[in-house]
Design a protein around this nucleic acid. Structure first.
Lengths: 217, 217
DNA sequence: TGACATAGTTACTAAATAATAACTATATCA
DNA sequence: TGATATAGTTATTATTTAGTAACTATGTCA
């Protein structure tokens, strides 16, 4: 949660805790009460910020319509929690030991196939998969054929891996904000970085990679 | 467990479905709309009945305050729902375009955490996750911290990535059957291959890697 | 038959809730 | 210095939502 301010973190934490304790999300007034602030405009702005940064989604006009989008929530320390919340998960398996070793709303006709995934990793409408083609991110251990789980958002932090739309084509790059421009860096020395200067409009950030899924035959 | 009437079942099913799809429970008016009845008194009485029979709890005066008390109880034997692909275990996301760019049954005490996964990726009981440690498979794009989905099996094909138990420790290697021995090859030039000759018993194949799952913060 | 549970209607009210307007204040940045 | 982002206040409003009143209808049961 490095991208959030302290205040925003406490809002997020409260929503998460409230949701767990009550089974449904809090109202703005309840959040305001917890933050000990009066009125709910402050809360609205916190929620707007959280939404812009991709941590929650909301449905305008609906009460208690906050959804958490963070995939890290799909982990659980103990089995009881998983079973108690079973309906929120598609399926679960044990993890043993360790080994040493421009398409925020993709159009229907672009859909190639479907893949199921933990619901909590993908609550919002602004999440989808991209199938990776090419080897431009090979040094980030992302290969041709991998499914990249993308969270739609127009902003990013340094070193995030983002989906950029370049000349109408989606491409994965690592994001760096530099003095007077943005640099989109492939993780493969054979490819050159892309520089986006202020005002250039043929390159845009579509979302951020939040997961990688690979199936080996 | 008390019995539900047909109408009450459909109310319960709708609440469950709505909760899964939206992340928060429906309002009474939304339930009424789904049941195609006008007014919400009918809904209130259904909810009261469900509450009396122990299927839900509510908080008086709060909007969207319905909680399912036994989420594992499914009335989704409902054929329409299964056919529509909305059974309670699966969730689907679209895949858009392409980007250029010795533990068959792991003992309870080895379990570190749980993670949910597509049930189709894990049909049989002999499937589990291993958390990857180290960089011995880095050239196969498998990193420290990745979750490797393992299918338990003692045999393997050439070039499969397998989990081998070496000196009591699990390790990922690529599998090669050669003239008079088996070679377990790391995908990192800094590491040496392991050779298993006929009759050696301190190295065994535990299973095969069938998936890689990575969460980026 | 009458008693009872279930299921529905229309009309209404009060409380809860989201959203907006018009301000103030503070810290950071170039 | 001024611009910007963050964080807050009070006041107000429109909508959403839960809950109530008064009624009809149908099936089951003893």
């Amino acid at each position: 949660m490095n991208e959030l301010t302290e205040r925003q973190k406490s809002v997020y934490t409260f929503i998460s805790t409230y949701q767990k304790q009550n089974g449904y999300p809090p109202t703005m007034q309840e959040i305001a009460g917890h933050l000990k602030i009066s009125g709910n405009l402050g809360v609205i702005r916190h929620l707007t910020a959280l939404e812009k940064k991709g941590f929650i989604t909301r449905t305008p006009g609906n009460s208690r319509s906050i959804r958490l989008t963070s995939p890290s929530l799909s982990y659980s320390e103990n089995r009881e929690q998983m079973i108690a919340g079973e309906d929120q998960f598609s399926f679960f398996l044990p993890v043993v030991g360790t080994v040493r070793a421009g398409m925020p709303q993709p159009p229907e006709e672009d859909i190639q196939e479907y893949y199921s995934i933990d619901r909590n990793a993908a609550r919002s409408g602004g999440t989808f998969f991209l199938k990776v083609k090419g080897d431009s991110m090979i040094n980030a251990a992302i290969c041709e054929g991998d499914l990249a789980l993308i969270r739609s958002q127009a902003v990013a932090q340094d070193r995030d891996i983002v989906v950029a739309l370049v000349d109408g084509e989606a491409t994965l790059k690592r994001f760096y904000r530099e003095t007077d421009h943005i640099r989109l860096q492939p993780e493969n020395p054979d490819y050159a970085p892309l520089i986006i200067r202020e005002g250039s409009s043929d390159i845009s950030i579509i979302g951020k990679v939040v997961g990688i899924y690979r199936t080996l035959s």
